[in-house]
Design a protein around this nucleic acid. Structure first.
Lengths: 145, 145
DNA sequence: CTCAATGCAAAGTATTTGCAACCGA
DNA sequence: TCGGTTGCAAATACTTTGCATTGAG
């Protein structure tokens, strides 16, 4: 499983290996979705909807509900990472400057991280013709058992 | 409007001033919600649901739809800040380590920020009995006109 | 008075679930 | 075969909208 091995695999084979290493059964649908996600070895950002459309576009018959379920399964297995605060609920803060937040994964509780407790020493250069509107930092916390 | 002025206001008066300074009409419902949000001068994190419950608890009759609408109005007026990536849509990333993201506000497009382009030199101490599960950084971008 | 704000219900969008049919090991 | 997986439709959760009514300036 060296890096050079990975280079020469077909998308299908790469997808299957990705699934097997995570202990997931490589079913037809999972292989199709996995192949769309990592078949070319590049990273991707998808929503359930966008992945569903991509699958449809290449003729892979996967239902939208299965795409949702599969994304969840992949995420639980550590193959994907969900971006941003989970859940469909929006939070609003009476502090309007950019500042970091603590977010408790278990119960969805949100609170301010102590002022001055974080320093970002280097910010990425925004792409040409775009400017930075703000920076959101969410520190996800897990209660210790 | 000095800091010491702010100290001695009643919650109601503070709320009304907050609204007026943002150019919003201080209606009964808005004052009730504003008072719950900043009446004691402390910062708060709310969801539409939690604010609705808080209002109900103090006997303020405000419909849930109005709470949603009012939070949006407050946010548009700069009185509140919405936390996390906006929109009810979840994004999934094939890269599973913590790394920063660019998020285009206009069209919801998501992409990786260049590797190594950000450095967080100081992380907050997590509260006792909690550990940091991860750090999400989303750099919101606005296209230049 | 006038127009913005409200409230309700209904619509809209995102996501999950129940359960029968299916399929890979 | 057996239990994990799929697919559909229905359910759920969250949020916005249409429109008639209300109320602040």
């Amino acid at each position: 499983m060296s890096a050079s091995d990975e280079q020469n695999l077909t998308p299908e084979c790469r997808a299957e290996r990705w699934l097997l290493e995570a202990g997931l059964r490589p079913t037809r649908q999972r292989k199709a979705l996995a192949s769309l996600l990592i078949g070319d070895g590049k990273h991707r950002h998808v929503t359930a909807e966008s992945l569903y459309e991509a699958a449809s576009a290449v003729g892979a018959a996967v239902s939208l509900a299965t795409v949702y379920n599969t994304l969840r399964v992949f995420t639980d297995a550590g193959l994907l990472k969900e971006i941003g605060v989970e859940g469909p609920r929006s939070y609003f803060d009476t502090r309007t400057e950019d500042h970091p937040h603590f977010f408790y994964e278990e119960d969805g509780e949100m609170s301010d991280a102590p002022t001055g407790s974080i320093r970002i020493s280097k910010l990425p250069e925004p792409p040409a013709n775009a400017e930075i509107a703000g920076v959101d930092v969410v520190i996800r916390l897990r209660r210790k058992g």
